[in-house]
């Protein structure tokens, strides 16, 4: 059995909440270990992660830095930097960590499928949903929008050709892979890149106009929807942990002892009651453990 790969973590007085979440999400074969300048490194240490408030003049390499607010780490060049999503001074390419809860029921629905869902529900071919301070609205682009109950926002996020939202409503929309328009603060808060992940408008009129244009441009909508969804997910601790390992050159086992059929299905985003899970169970029924490798007790498929 091979020894685990270790990531030495150098922290100051406080351990940032986001950092804790990332460490907890590291792949099973990568162990985080607390380290300090005064103690010998444990065997198997292959990389280091420093909080910026304890970053030494000559850090051990390879290393990454968690940017602690108020502790300027100077010019870090190509060093991977982690920070809370929406933090000040985030550079392009920094690993931004979001602790927002991902809506459990959300599924990415790209524009072609959205159009199909609208079609089978006899909804308009083009539909814009908008979350405003005064409530939730929906309608055809350029038309008079109608008010909708607040709790219908996930449905609108799933069916609209384009949405206008900020804050939690924007996060929900991204979880459903809605092509989204927001303001500059909303994009920054969620660590989104304007024109790649979302469109940004300066005022309500500009945002409505952008949403109407987006609703008519399937190609652009598909790119934004896919990118916004993937970027939002990449800010969750498991995505950041995987990216951190890759950028530090920490090789993780492609098929660890808990990577079985279930893990493969999970990684692809397969819903619990989908046909393919039933087929996988049927195909492996005579093979003990084939499906339960990667078993997790809360998944009802194994009950």
């Amino acid at each position: 059995m091979t020894a685990p790969v270790r990531l030495a973590v150098h922290v100051g007085r406080d351990v940032p909440e986001g950092l804790t979440a990332v460490l907890a999400a590291l792949p099973p074969d990568v162990q985080p270990v607390a380290a300090s300048e005064r103690e010998a490194l444990p065997e198997g240490t292959v990389a280091h992660l420093y909080c910026s408030d304890v970053l030494p003049r000559r850090p051990a390499t390879p290393y990454a830095v968690w940017r602690v607010p108020g502790a300027d780490a100077g010019d870090l060049g190509d060093v991977p930097v982690l920070a809370d999503a929406g933090a000040e001074h985030v550079r392009p390419g920094d690993l931004q960590v979001s602790l927002r809860a991902w809506p459990e029921a959300a599924r990415p629905i790209l524009p072609f499928t959205r159009a199909g869902l609208r079609r089978v529900r006899d909804l308009p071919g083009r539909l814009v949903g908008e979350a405003r301070p005064d409530g939730v609205w929906w309608g055809v682009p350029g038309g008079q929008p109608a008010a909708a109950p607040l709790d219908t926002w996930p449905t609108l996020a799933a069916l609209s050709s384009a949405v206008v939202a900020t804050g939690e409503e924007l996060w929900t929309a991204l979880a459903w892979a809605a092509p989204a328009v927001t303001d500059a603060a909303g994009a920054r808060l969620l660590g989104l890149t304007p024109d790649e992940d979302v469109l940004v408008g300066d005022d309500p009129a500009a945002r409505s106009r952008l949403a109407a244009e987006l609703a008519d441009d399937d190609l652009r909508a598909a790119r934004l929807a896919r990118s916004g969804w993937q970027t939002a997910r990449s800010h969750l601790p498991p995505g950041v942990a995987a990216d951190l390992c890759r950028r530090l050159g920490v090789r993780t086992a492609p098929h660890s002892s808990v990577s079985g059929l279930t893990a493969a299905l999970d990684a692809l985003g397969t819903p619990p009651h989908s046909l393919v899970r039933r087929r996988a169970r049927a195909a492996t029924a005579a093979l003990p453990g084939a499906v339960t490798a990667g078993w997790r007790p809360h998944r009802e498929e194994h009950s």
Binding site: R107, P108, I109, L110, F112, T113, G116, L117, R119, V120, R226, Q230, A267, L268, G269, T270, P271, S274, L275, V276
Partner: peptide, 22 residues
């Protein structure tokens, strides 16, 4: 076909394709 079952299969394939190709 244009029904919810087909559309969910199509949606899931889209999600899988995006994951695998990415």
């Amino acid at each position: 076909a244009w029904d919810d079952v087909s559309l969910e299969e199509q949606r899931l394939l889209t999600e899988w394709d995006v994951a695998a190709l990415s």
